[in-house]
Amino acid sequence: MRLVAEGLSRSFGRRKIFGPLSFEVPAGAVLGVAGSNGSGKTTLLKTLSGLIRPSGGCAKIFFDGEEVGAGHEPRDVPWCIGWVAPDLALYGELTAEENLVFFQSVHGLPASPGRARALLEGVGLSEHSHSKKSLSSLSTGQRQRVKLAYATLHDPAVLFLDEPSSNLDADGVEVVARVVAAQRGRGIAIIASNDPRDLGLADETLSL
């Protein structure tokens, strides 16, 4: 599989945010996106993931065996996409485990508390944190770890990570590295960040 952007751009009114950009990310690769605050890193990730429409060009995901020129717009294959971002929130009234079981169900996966617990333990959360406390009572760093588990619970082909290490301690940064390493075996990861620890995980970096 691969992700291809062709002449991708986004503007809000007359204000150009980024682009036009053209690039290709092959399977197993990790692309870093760097740039100063307000340079459009988050908007680029939202456009690539299909959360917002591009003003020009397109982004397509190609799976094995598909013809050149075919491919899927990300918004049409949302189950192939994992997403972590600072402005993403999960349900504060539910526990971390309940959140993951809910997202398993809406993704069409079997609702498995056991698998949810395993994912949460994989990102370094203790049983007390993920099954007894509501998400809103966890620390910002713990919630960031839950977001990483949420983004990977359906084995996405493309994983978008916007500032993945923000609010994380040293162990948490290790978790991000493990998540990115695992993603190489599943497909593609795209990391938008200014943190050298995040960008150090990428094979190539695109500067905005």
Partner: peptide, 28 residues
Amino acid sequence: MNARPPAPLLGAALAVFRKDLLAEWRTR
């Protein structure tokens, strides 16, 4: 190919229904 089909409509709808009820029960 990783492009599995989307979730069944009714199962996903019931999951949204249960999640909203649980959240509403806890906040009211």
